[in-house]
Amino acid sequence: MRVGIITGSGSYSWPFLDEATARSVDTPHGSVDVTEGTVGGVEVVHLSRHGKGHQRLSHQVDHRANLAALLALKADALLSFTVCGAVDPAAAPGSLVVFDDLYFPSNRLPDGSPCTWFDTPGQQGRGHWILDAGPFSEPLRRTVARAARDVHDRVVDGGVYGHVDGPRFNTRAEIRALAAAQVTAVSQTAGPEVVLAGEAELPMALVGYVTDYANGVAATPEPVSALLERMAASTGIFAALAARTLAGVDRVPAPGFVHRFDA
């Protein structure tokens, strides 16, 4: 089994990767730098959304290229990690959130185009991703949640991931609107990954590490330095979680199904 791992802010390389080999993958949507290796005997393909040194801000991430690279390298599942801000006060900073739902009503890529692989009339394989439950592979999500409880003391099992556009952070009014939609935590990059993985029928789980409370959630905001400290700690926490997950991972089904018009 081969598992794709996508990381975000603060996680530009993947620690404890055995037999690590860096390469560039050419896709119809652009070139993507990845690192292949193994973790506990499981084949892994890692890529950083933002690139080395945070080269790309959130509105410059090429999600279709990233997912196309993982698909070209025959990933059987995807673990996606993001640092995030808590909208729900119960998701305290320092918590891991293993999401089970998505709030991404704009369904747009950073360039403003629709978030889909199906952008050409008559395209082979075009269709609708129909979710009979949540947008994540529930067997994979449960495996991740069990692993999270083994490696971390603060875990939120379930929750709504809210995708927002960057690169600016949100106003208090915007966070109140997200809270009304029952969003648990928010960040600027994972929404398109969920949709593109779903349309490609690639099983996926999404985990957030809460670095701070979103704007207006806490009565007194923490200093930015606290956010940065947690962001720096996230790589090791995500790596430990991934290693524990991979030790128990197996082939899992994708969520929902794609109704294709040429099937």
Rank of each mutant, 00 (worst) to 15 (best):
T220R: 15
V194K: 05
L206M: 13
D101M: 04
R126E: 04
A181I: 09
E174S: 13
F261L: 12
T116Y: 03
A219H: 15
A200L: 12
T82Q: 05
S13G: 14
H46S: 03
L17C: 00
F104V: 04
N66G: 07
G158T: 04
L196S: 05
L78P: 11
G122E: 09
Y12N: 07
T35N: 03
V183K: 07
G51E: 08
Y213E: 14
A72K: 09
T235I: 06
T27C: 03
G40T: 00
G8M: 08
V156Y: 01
F118Y: 13
N215V: 13
R149P: 04
A179C: 09
K52Y: 14
R149M: 09
G41I: 10
D111V: 06
F169H: 15
Q60Y: 07
Q60N: 05
A218W: 12
P28M: 02
R142S: 10
R154N: 14
P135Q: 12
A181V: 10
M204C: 11
G208W: 12
L102T: 09
H163G: 01
A247Q: 15
H46K: 00
E229M: 08
R108K: 12
G40L: 00
F169V: 10
T27I: 03
A180T: 08
G8Y: 02
F118A: 10
R176F: 07
E193R: 11
Q60T: 06
A177S: 15
V186I: 10
E193Y: 06
G134L: 02
L228N: 13
V194P: 11
K52C: 12
A239L: 00
T220Y: 10
R154M: 10
A90Y: 05
A232N: 13
V164S: 13
N170D: 13
E229N: 13
F238G: 04
L227M: 15
G51L: 02
W129C: 04
V258A: 11
D100I: 03
A240P: 09
T27V: 02
D18N: 01
H259E: 14
D26L: 13
T116K: 07
D153S: 12
V195D: 11
A133L: 07
R146E: 14
D150Y: 06
P93R: 07
G122W: 09
L17T: 00
Q55G: 11
D33S: 10
S31L: 09
S31R: 15
V42K: 01
E19P: 01
L96S: 12
P15T: 00
V144D: 04
G162M: 04
F104E: 08
E138I: 07
P203D: 06
D165W: 02
V83P: 11
A242Y: 00
A242W: 01
L131Q: 04
A214I: 07
A214L: 08
A185N: 05
F238D: 11
D212Y: 02
A179T: 11
A173C: 11
V39D: 00
